[in-house]
Simulated assay, not measured.
Amino acid sequence: MSKRDNTASTSVIEDALAALFDSDTDGLLDTPEKTAKVTSNDRLERAFLEIVEFRRRQGRAPSSTTREIAERKLGARLDGILANDEKHEALTHLDEFDLLSVPEPPASLDDLLDGDELDLLEDESGVLDVSTLPARKRPAEDFDAAKRKKATDFENFEHLFKAKHRELADGVAKLVPFPGQQHIVEGSFFILRGVMLFVAEVGEPEYKKSTVRENRRERLRVIFENGTESSMYRQSLGIRMGEKDGQAVVPTSFESVLAEDVQTGYVYVLRSLSDDPQITNIPNLYKIGFSRGPVEKRIARAEHEPTYLMAPVEIVASYRTYNLKTSTLEHLLHRVFAPSRLRVSQVGKEGRVYEPSEWFSVPLPVINQAIDLIGSGEIVNCSYDAASQRLVERN
Rank of each mutant, 00 (worst) to 15 (best):
A248T: 06
D129S: 06
V195W: 07
E214R: 11
D119C: 09
F178I: 08
T328I: 13
I223E: 01
A76W: 09
A107Y: 04
A145Q: 10
L258F: 11
G289W: 00
R136K: 12
E214I: 15
S231Y: 15
K174R: 15
E158P: 02
L329N: 06
L99F: 06
A311W: 00
F21C: 00
R390S: 14
V195P: 02
R298K: 07
Q346T: 08
G194L: 04
L91Y: 07
R343S: 11
L44F: 03
R56P: 01
K349Y: 12
L99C: 02
R72A: 13
K3E: 15
E86W: 09
L270A: 04
M310D: 00
V102R: 11
H304P: 00
V195S: 13
P205Q: 04
E393W: 14
L29M: 01
H159R: 10
I379F: 06
S376G: 08
R4E: 15
T307H: 00
R217K: 11
S388W: 08
F254K: 10
V52W: 02
G289V: 01
T39R: 07
D385Y: 04
D95I: 01
R136M: 10
P251S: 14
L91A: 01
F224Y: 11
I315C: 03
P363G: 05
L309H: 00
F224D: 03
E96C: 10
Y354I: 00
T252A: 13
L20F: 00
L112D: 03
V380L: 09
V353N: 02
L373E: 11
D142M: 13
Y384S: 03
H165M: 06
E225N: 04
D123W: 07
V172L: 15
A36N: 09
S376H: 05
E296T: 15
G377H: 05
R56T: 09
L91N: 03
A370I: 02
S357C: 08
T252C: 07
A61M: 06
L118K: 12
F337V: 06
I69E: 15
A76R: 14
V130H: 14
E158K: 11
P105Q: 08
G375M: 02
E167N: 11
E355N: 10
A259R: 12
K147T: 10
D170S: 11
R4M: 13
D30R: 02
E330L: 07
Q247P: 02
I191N: 12
P105R: 06
T35R: 15
K297L: 07
D26G: 01
L333W: 04
V202M: 12
K349C: 02
D5I: 09
T66D: 05
L285Y: 08
R271I: 02
R193P: 03
V102L: 12
R234Y: 04
E201T: 09
E296F: 09
L91V: 03
P251E: 08
Y233K: 06
D372A: 15
S101H: 11
I282R: 14
A16L: 08
R335Y: 15
G242M: 05
L329I: 13
D372S: 14
N395F: 14
R57V: 15
Y268C: 01
E358F: 00
S230F: 05
M232R: 06
K162A: 10
F161D: 02
I184L: 07
E305K: 01
E204I: 09
A259N: 13
A387R: 13
K244T: 11
N84R: 08
T326W: 07
